[in-house]
Amino acid sequence: YFCFLKAMKSLTKKHFHAYRVSPLCMFSYPRLQHYAQMLETFLTAEVKCAGDPTTNSGFHTNISVFPGLATGQRDPEAILIQIFCKQEQKRPAWEGLLCSVEPEPSYLTVCMPFVLLPLLLVHGPKKFTTAWKTWFERTFDCCVSPLVIPSYELAWMAALWAGAMSVPRTLDLQWSSPPPVSDGLHITMSVNRNDALRLWDCVHTSGEEEVGLFKQGLEEHIFHHFHVILDAMILESVSSGVASANNSGHIKVLFHKPLVHILVASSYLLDILIPTKGS
C-alpha cells in the first residue's frame, strides 16, 4: 500500500502535458528492460548526430510498470518511462506515464497484437519528448498527438473540483477572447472556495445538467456586472485547490486522492474528441 501511495504522490505537484496514443503494435510487458536499452541507445545516437555539447554525458533510462492505475477490469497496467542524465542519477530529467484508466467501451475493441494505452502524461523538456516520440512511434507503429481539452470539458472539471475542494484556495477560471479582439484579452474569475461550493450545492438540487448550469451561472453573474458575453469566448484554463488544467493539455494535480478520477476524465476525453491532425 505504501509503495502505491509513494508512486501516486510522485505524480502530484508536477506539470504534465497530456497526449493521446493510438494502440501499440507488438508491445510486450515482459520485454520492458529490452525497450529501456533500445531507448537508451536511440537517445545516445540522437545526441551524437545532433552534436549537442551540453548533453554529451549520456543517459540512463528506466521503463517499468506503474502500480495502482489499472482500476478497471480490462485495464492494462500503466507504464512509467524515465530518462536520467548520467550527471544526476537521482532525479529523472524526463518522465512519461502511459496509461489506460477505465476508457470508453468503443476503445476496448482492439485485436490481440495491439495493446491499448491511450493516455500519455509527459513531464520534462520538449527535446526529450520529441526524441522519445520518434523512437516510440517507430518501435510500436503508433501515433502520439497532443490532447486538446475543449472549453466544455474544462468547465466540467471546474464544476467537479468546486465540489471537492478541501484546501482554502479560490476556484480560478480564465477565458480568452477570440483573435479579432485587439491585443488579445484574458478574463480571469476567481471565486471564493466557500461560494463556489455553495453554488455547486445549489446546482445539484436543480436536477438538470449540472455542469453546464455551473458555468452558465458564473457567466450570467459576470454579464450582469460587465455586459461581457463569456459564452462567446474560449475557456482557456481552470485551477483549484485540487488540480489545474488548460486547453492545450497541461494538467497539474495537487493531491494524490483525486488523481485517478482526473485520469478517468482525461481518458474519457480521448474517446469523445475528434482526432487532431497527425493522429
Binding site: G184, L185, I187, M189, N192, D195, R198, L199, H221, V228
Partner: peptide, 19 residues
C-alpha cells in the same frame, strides 16, 4: 458571492473597447 475578476491584455482598454 465573493469573486475577483481580472481583465488582462497588452492594452486592456483597447481590448475592452473592441469587445
Amino acid at each position: 458571492f465573493s469573486t475577483k475578476v481580472r481583465f488582462q491584455s497588452k492594452n486592456v482598454l483597447e481590448a475592452v473597447k473592441s469587445l
